[in-house]
Design a protein around this nucleic acid. Structure first.
Lengths: 393, 393
DNA sequence: AACGATTCCGGAAACGTTACCGATAGTTTT
DNA sequence: AAAACTATCGGTAACGTTTCCGGAATCGTT
């Protein structure tokens, strides 16, 4: 027999349909609807929850707002109460719920980082640099990989923004040509810092590396080692870094009155076969190069291997220089002369620019930070024998 | 003249002290306290907030619970209302607040990963594997580096647990000997998956690699190439992987009736100088080795460089094999024979074990997954000339 | 008609925290 | 001793969701 939960009468109770699998009733006298008790097969499934600020408050016998004040070092609290709360909190193993705090404060203390590929040493080191600065400042880091896909990059940005990261540090994918997804409107106010592959379409803080100067320096070094016929293994012409490095190379040649030979400039997509093919083309020339500048470190290794197979000596027959990746360059013999791009510093600087932006808020003026690479000379370019080349200007 | 905010009288208003820099008043007739208006120098600082579910509800003219139902594909809603809400939501650029959702649902859809160092190719690839599976399942990944420090590792665990990650994937630091911080009590119910460097103290899911078999295979390969005097450059005896790889090496020798020579077993801390010193010690022996197994890929490269400098040919004079790091091993000439540890698979498997644990909840039985390395034969061990060695058992 | 079923929607209570503001009791000033 | 002040503390409303559950309208069935 069903009784109304209000008037306790059972006489005027009518059935009133089903809702979510349970019988509903209507008491005519009370004009009140209600449903039958829950099946409650298993006993109430205790909420296996953490101790909250309320639990501590109850234990101490104060209001939760007081506990909050005690925990956050607020002023409006007496030393004795504070200490009592702190003791109980520790004893109850209380830990604040960062989610609730973030919901309230609108800050997650989390940084989103988007890179093409974490497996590339350059980016791994950048991430490491970012993390060193970020964790110092109390920020956690969430990492996404675009895998050089524009679509993935966009969805990464959206996911990070949806997670309410406090900032977005991004290096665009190779595919990316549209930058709407990192504009303020799309990011809903989340500060964005670009590094390495940047976009001038967006008015954001940027950290870039000085490709032009790096390429100039490494080319100049080859010239000073006695090289006169310097070839360059450049990347896709669409890539900004490729254009800049080529320009630096060309400028060095001009500076030292060496001719720019079109047959010495080859653009590839960084594939090994392409690098080897370019080398063979060069070797077949009436005047083969006596030095090669590979703007990508992988291709530099490709060249070293191919040269060895063809019985040519490095650097005596042909010197080789690369760009980036310190570790691997130092591990082989002869060591590969490269430009250290300081990826760790790039990461650190990007994170610092973010922190600056957070602290200055609207006053922040986006600025671009240039990291200059450092020429690291190793065996692959040290001709040694070479007559010293004197500046002829 | 101050008037009471309730009775509008100014006669019975008394001053009543200062609070947080503002004058307080007390109306005697109302017995009501109040403070003077806020300085309000700047106009109310509009809360630069996102559109919420409430905003959409207001715009459509329904309750926020209805909007929630529409957005989440709930049943209790009419198609027309749902569509109207969806349209307005899109138009108002509504995005759900994941923080609020997480607070409610107690799920963050975030995975915490702790590794010693992201710059090491092995770990970078593991992370990549983790991410591939995680993002497929809708999880974001938060990465921390312990930098081989126990303290940092502990604080990383605490930070991730405090962020309410749904799971913790960890590879312990080299220093770690106490594992209390990854026990269920310390992690407050967050599922933990170990990979690579695991602890048997904790009853958790694990992914380990079969060091023993890998070492056995690579040693067997050397024997089959005709090597008879095989030295091993092992790591610290305290390290589990070092002991396992040594055991696999020893077993292979025994299996093929080769003597275990103590002078051929050297333990180092993976430093380059140590590797070179070990090599020189071996070369000075009356019977120097004809093959060396370096259990760490870095040391394998050290050996290659040192051998080259000493005018010895690889593999003809001495064969060299390493362990791990596919990329670099394949880049050099001769290529380095190694065991591919499949770090990507390790990461994938760790993430899968986590997902399994989440889905099965209490029913989950922790289990250990063993990833077997794959022998990748390259030039550094292919003696070629060697008479074929026939199994003599 | 009277009862029952179905459908759809609103209100309110969580989730855990912090900020605001009013309310006391006790202390000092006039 | 009234008036003014200080030091503490409690209550409540947010933050943005989701989940209950009751209310009301509509439709079908005896």
């Amino acid at each position: 027999m069903i009784t109304c939960v209000k008037c306790k009468l059972s006489s005027s109770v009518l059935k009133a349909g089903f809702v979510r699998g349970r019988q509903r009733f209507l008491c005519k006298t009370c004009d009140y609807h209600f449903t039958e008790e829950k099946p409650a097969g298993q006993l109430t499934e205790r909420r296996r929850s953490q101790t909250t600020i309320g639990d501590v408050a109850k234990a101490v016998g104060v209001a939760s707002s007081t506990v909050s004040r005690a925990l956050n070092g607020h002023t409006d609290i007496s030393p004795v109460t504070r200490q009592a709360i702190l003791d109980v909190a520790r004893q109850m193993d209380y830990h604040p719920n960062l989610l609730a705090q973030s919901l309230k404060s609108r800050e997650t203390h989390t940084l989103g980082v988007i890179i093409p590929d974490i497996e590339r040493p350059f980016f791994a080191t950048v991430v490491s640099g970012i993390q060193s600065v970020a964790s110092e400042a109390g920020y956690r880091v969430m990492i996404c990989q675009s895998k050089e896909s524009y679509e993935t990059e966009v969805s990464n940005v959206q996911a990070l923004v949806a997670s309410r990261v406090d900032g977005l540090l991004i290096c665009h994918s190779r595919e990316t040509e549209n930058f709407d997804h990192v504009k303020p409107a799309a990011c809903r106010g989340v500060p964005v810092v670009h590094f390495d592959r940047v976009s001038n379409e967006v008015d954001s803080a940027k950290v870039i590396l000085d490709d032009w100067n790096g390429a100039f320096n490494v080319t100049e070094h080859l010239i000073q080692q006695g090289a006169r016929r310097i070839a360059i293994l450049a990347g896709p012409e669409s890539l900004l870094i490729s254009r800049n490095r080529l320009a630096g190379y060309q400028h060095a040649l001009k500076r030292y009155n060496l001719p720019l030979r079109p047959e010495y400039e080859v653009h590839i997509e960084f594939r090994t076969e392409e690098a080897v093919a370019a080398l063979d083309k060069w070797l077949a020339l009436p005047e083969p190069p006596d030095a090669i500048f590979a703007i990508n470190y992988t291709n530099a290794f490709d060249l070293l291997v191919a040269l060895k197979k063809r019985g040519l000596r490095v650097p005596d027959d042909i010197a080789v220089v690369g760009f980036g990746d310190e570790f691997m360059a130092s591990m082989i013999e002869p060591g590969l002369t490269t430009v250290n791009l300081h990826p760790y510093r790039i990461g650190q600087q990007a994170a610092r620019l973010f922190l600056e932006q957070v602290r200055q808020k609207e006053d922040f003026q986006p600025r671009t930070f240039v990291i200059t690479g450092e020429l690291v000379i190793r065996g692959s370019s040290l001709k040694g024998k070479g007559e010293l080349f004197s500046l002829s200007i």
